[in-house]
């Protein structure tokens, strides 16, 4: 009964809450999405959105630039790099599964796999590579997985996000649409959609936290968060994948998070990343 009301509320929110994205295809969505932020933050060049809140707040930007002089993620990136080239028992390594990694590949993830009929994220591909080679998959969302993925992201710095949604493939479109619905649906006891915070209110404060625009949110993931660093220990504690962040943002509104690499989160990542097409990869980004 309760969940029914929640779904209804979500649907109502959707119907009324998505003026930006009226019955359009991915290309039109992307254009409208981008234009919305460009209008809302005049004077912020498109590429700057890759820097999240630092693109829109000078004080926080100064702090960040100072942190970047001695990047707190360097030690962890070295561990990610070592993992990437480490030989499996069969003599191969992750590097063999991603032969183009050094040229930069992160910009193409997540991608639509027409044979499997599903969206494949970089983290999923990393763990599938390990399994295919007889190794245990990493734990999801943080630790070594996030560090390896951050290293691959680091090798891709400067490459522009290029997620493809084949518009002639109804299955791909269905994944995209599911991600879009997720993004605009109100959820949780506090009744928030992603869009409530990151489309309607970027640049405003929720308590002391300045909200970032959704445009450009994905470019620097896996990210290195001081908050995560403080909660854990060791050089890898600060790393987290984009889906770790989704989990956090779902919990904030008292919604039950989905499992890492669930169809829901992969769909969301597909839509969310597509919306930042054209922006430069700058992983791993430091965030508070």
């Amino acid at each position: 009964m309760k969940s029914k009301t929640l779904i209804l509320a979500a649907a109502a929110g959707l119907a009324a809450g998505a003026p930006l994205l009226a019955q359009a295809g991915p290309k039109e969505d992307l254009k409208a999405f981008r234009e919305y932020y460009m209008k809302r933050f005049p004077g912020v060049p498109l590429d700057e959105f890759a820097n999240g809140v630092y693109a829109i707040d000078a004080g926080m930007r100064a702090e960040w630039e100072q942190m970047e002089e001695f990047p707190p993620y360097e030690l962890g990136l070295d561990i990610g790099k070592a993992e990437f080239y480490k030989k499996f028992k069969n003599g191969k390594s992750l590097a063999d599964c991603f032969p183009d990694a050094e040229k930069g590949i992160k910009q193409n993830y997540p991608y639509w796999d027409p044979k499997r009929k599903e969206v494949i994220t970089l983290e999923l591909a990393i763990n599938e590579c390990r399994k295919a080679n007889g190794e245990k998959p990493y734990k999801w969302k943080k630790g070594k997985l996030a560090a390896v993925s951050a290293y691959i992201g680091y090798l891709s710095r400067g490459k522009r996000i290029n997620v493809v949604v084949p518009e002639d493939d109804p299955d791909a479109l269905a994944w995209y649409e599911r991600g879009k619905r997720f993004f605009y649906a109100k959820r949780g006891q506090l009744n928030f959609s992603c869009a409530d915070c990151h489309v309607a209110n970027p640049g405003r404060r929720i308590r002391a936290n300045l909200l970032s625009p959704a445009l450009g949110q994905v470019t620097h993931f896996p990210a290195y968060r001081k908050k995560w660093e403080a909660k854990g220990s060791g050089a890898l504690a600060g790393f987290g994948t984009i889906q770790r962040r989704y989990t956090g943002c779902n919990k904030q509104v008292r919604a039950k998070p989905f499992k890492a690499q669930s169809v829901e989160y992969r769909s969301l990542e597909y839509f969310h990343t597509y919306m930042s097409n054209g922006l430069p990869i700058n992983a791993p980004g430091v965030r508070m």
Binding site: A9, G17, L190
Partner: peptide
């Protein structure tokens, strides 16, 4: 708060038993 404005980001404190 969604009664007055269905798109509001203000949580419905009574309806959702917050």
């Amino acid at each position: 708060a969604t009664k007055r404005n269905p798109n509001t980001s203000m949580p419905p404190f009574g309806r959702h038993k917050i």
